[in-house]
Design a protein around this nucleic acid. Structure first.
Lengths: 244, 244
DNA sequence: TCAATAGTGTCTCTTAGACACTATCGT
DNA sequence: ACGATAGTGTCTAAGAGACACTATTGA
């Protein structure tokens, strides 16, 4: 197959944008919401050398059957794991966002239990590490338009957390209700009322109790697991605090 | 500039998907939610000849500065109008969705006052017309994967209508509250309670009264216009009917 | 018995939903 | 006066938010 196959069929444009997929992988570490970033290679031939970026890259039209498959592949390459939750955030494309030319990117975000995975520095990424989302360490120092992409992913995540069970995908398979409540508080960045939280989560059927409790020094807590390991639950109302 | 410019820079993939933008343009006509479709040319060299499809097509990397600009261009070409509301729904891409090869599409949906525009049959589209969204006339007879795309756009629209002022963008610049309520009912496909509707819409500051009323045979109705002509308003709660 | 965390009960207040009622036009 | 549509008021019930209270462990 020649390298220009499919580039010159009649009616198809000869000049095409290049197409990438980026993934914002979120986890909770040290009681903080963090995002997985990779460091770009320090080669003068590469754009933004040495800067941090969302993991991602070009579509491989011979290896990737679809955009989502491409996102899952890039996720697996960095984490060696299959994320329990993956969702498309949107797409961006313009002449200016990549110095190499007209480009589009399809942005996904993934949630996973951060302590369950091993980071995998890749051939094309000097380093891989978690960065706190709230911290200023990352702000404004990301390659390409990734600061904007990350902000969009965080905004989407925070918005959906108000009315879905998404934070459960940040926890290991078995967890307690206080664990889950803490995950909500970490993502939202504000405290959540305990009684209302428990009522809502249990009424919505997000979780089901298992026949075990967590033994700590204090009163033991009932262990739960997700009722639906793959799909999030949507709540009828939100967690938003009462307006004043 | 040679036709392969930008195709062979070092590090860039030589094989790229082709990139399209599609737009689901919605309007209310004959008391129904309708979508603008174009008929594909009846040429054997074109895929899906004669079938109906969402307006759209390839990115023109020399004419389009961004994906959204491309969507606005395609919208203007068919309607001659600038839509008061345009939102990205998502993107799809795979090897299989277009017989000509690996392709991606970026789907937008637009809302506009249907009676304010003139349809413009284009060079590459045999015909343009409105189709009822609910009707079976369109179902399963769309080109490419556009049935799926249209379903996604309708789903997004319906979901957002529950908690936003989107239907206002389907009305002319001046309208009455009963007009607006009717627009909600048409999009949602179910009746909306009058009193709660008015309370919510007015409390949210969606509209502002103008110094005129609509004279019909009956009691005249106060005319309003959008408080914010460009941005939709988000309600704190939804219009969903009480569960049983 | 105390500290600490898990889990429940109770009160209030807001708001949606239902629906009846009033208001204003033309005929 | 009446039909028809515009617009308001009232009652009820459900759920959120606040917060106090009880429960269960180890030390």
């Amino acid at each position: 197959m020649s390298p220009t196959d499919g580039q010159d069929l009649p009616g198809l444009p000869t000049q095409r944008p290049f197409v990438t997929v980026d993934v914002a992988i979120f986890g909770v570490l040290q009681d903080e919401l963090q995002v997985l970033l990779v460091q770009r290679p320090s080669l003068a031939t590469e754009p933004y050398p040495g800067l941090w970026a969302l993991p991602g890259g070009f579509i491989d039209v011979s290896a990737d059957d679809s955009l989502e498959a491409c996102a899952r592949r890039k996720l697996a390459v960095k984490t060696g794991a299959v994320a329990p939750y993956l969702e498309q955030v949107g797409s961006w494309g313009s002449k200016a966002r990549d110095p190499r030319g007209w480009s589009t990117t399809h942005l996904y975000f993934a949630l996973l239990p951060a302590d369950s995975i091993q980071l995998v520095p890749g051939a094309n990424a000097a380093d891989v590490r978690w960065w706190p989302v709230a911290g200023a360490g990352v702000r404004g120092r990301l390659a390409f338009d990734h600061a904007k992409l990350l902000a969009a992913a965080v905004e989407r995540l925070r918005a959906k957390v108000e009315y879905t069970s998404l934070p459960a995908f940040l926890l290991p398979r078995e967890f307690t209700l206080p664990d889950l409540q803490r995950a909500y508080e970490i993502v939202l960045g504000r405290p959540v009322e305990k009684s209302a939280f428990r009522t809502r989560v249990l009424a919505a059927g997000v979780v089901e109790p298992i026949d075990r409790q967590r033994q700590t020094g204090k009163r033991p807590a009932q262990l739960y697991r997700l009722a639906s390991r793959s799909e999030p639950i949507y709540f009828p109302r939100t967690f938003e605090p009462k307006r004043d």
